[in-house]
Design a binder for these strands. Structure first.
Lengths: 235, 235
DNA sequence: ACATTTGTGTTTGGTAGCTAACAGACACTG
DNA sequence: CAGTGTCTGTTAGCTACCAAACACAAATGT
């Protein structure tokens, strides 16, 4: 299980490095750019050839995939400190398998593959940081895979909501409200279920006092977080 | 889509490094050991506290997870050049989420977390190699997640068999035979389905000439690989 | 050689969750 | 404020899939 601090903002060797010496870095790695992405616009799209690498400075990025049959699924939601983009040898140059879209305002650093590779090689402390980042992402997806394959929709929904509360929850009166706006369809895509089931389940949860929501915010109650062991009983 | 060469044995900077200078490395990183693991025994088990890191030299390792409800699922099958084990900060010391078991004889190099971290820092060329390895694993699992969430069992089965043929296929008369012994239950765990469905589907595929199998080997016919675009038409 | 275990093939209900559809609430826009 | 689009709630019917069961075949042990 994750400790609730796992996703808190990291001391961030990368953060520090960039902010303190962006100008210097630009000389060595000319491709580095700080870019801002507007709500709902794309870092890259499924099918693009993209040899850039991104490090998210602030905001939330949705990684999703559209199947031939037209169903969308959300692979992950990423935030400050996460990395995305192309990390394979350029020679293998392949189409991106997913779409990366900004949820709200996002700002991030962008490099070319080669510049990033060079940067990594010359900054050992950074290497390990990025390393752990990717490793954690891998672990997280494995966890998700497990849940998807073995658990029914209800459990998947709860698990996902709890995870969201940990990642994007901001304190409100009775619990943690999500700082992202998600429609029921968004949630459904996140857990690989149909919108209608999500709707009924959410209703159900609301009746049972697990959470509360309006059309533009979901709030997971403390009671739920406690009973699922994500939050320690307040003294 | 993967090219069929993606999983062929890599030039292997790691391979070379180890084999040429194992003795030297042992001095700098005393924890390095070459170990052999017998068929069906474990590198580590779900729930263990394990701070080791493994690099597979030869053989096949199954990464699986057992849910509280008792259903087993296979996260991945790993082979030569793949890395497994604990890559998180030791302070976070957590239980392993999966079991790593040898399928057949396996030999690998084992390090402690710290030694591996040190090794990485001092061998930039290695870093990138391991980096790409983990990144590819991540990509692969994301792909799997996508398929599991959006495709019915039949498609999942075909996709998985094709992947296995690419990874573990050895040439035989009419196609590629898998060099691993998998029971129908094993296959079911791999795709998150019930054994009975797998049984009927496999039968079905056999009748349709897609593959052939006995109780201890599965062979995917060339015809299938061609028609699913995994193999170029022979000239 | 016989008993036990392990794997396969097939059937039988039962159900979770899907698609499709529609009606009501809310939120914009001219 | 009517008019249009987006989101939610709920229902109805259908089906892919599962769990359980059993019979048979092949391996394995004694």
């Amino acid at each position: 299980m994750m400790s609730s601090s796992e996703h808190s903002i990291q001391p961030g060797s990368m953060n520090t490095l960039f902010e303190s010496s962006l100008e210097q870095l630009k000389k060595d790695y000319p491709s580095i750019q700080e870019i801002n992405i507007a709500n709902k616009s794309f870092l890259y799209r499924q099918g693009d050839y993209c040899s850039n690498f991104f490090w998210i400075k602030s905001g939330i990025v949705k990684l999703s995939h559209l199947t031939e049959q037209g169903s969308e699924i959300t692979i992950a939601l990423l935030r400050e400190g996460d990395v995305i983009g192309y990390l394979q040898d350029e020679s293998a140059s392949q189409e991106m398998e997913e779409t990366a879209q900004a949820l709200g305002e996002v700002s991030c650093y962008r490099f070319t593959y080669n510049n990033f590779k060079a940067l990594i090689s010359h900054h050992a402390e950074l290497t390990w940081h990025v390393f752990e980042e990717i490793y954690n992402r891998k672990q997280k997806i494995e966890r998700k895979l497990r849940i998807m394959l073995t658990q029914p929709v209800e459990i998947r929904l709860i698990a996902t909501l709890l995870e969201l509360a940990e990642m994007f929850g901001i304190r409100c009166t009775h619990g943690y409200a999500l700082e992202i706006h998600l429609t029921q369809q968004d949630v459904a895509d996140l857990i690989g279920a149909s919108r209608s089931v999500v709707s009924t389940l959410l209703n159900d949860f609301r009746n049972r006092g697990i959470l509360d929501y309006t059309r533009d915010q979901i709030c997971i109650n403390d009671a739920a977080l406690i009973s699922f062991g994500k939050l320690k009983q307040q003294p």
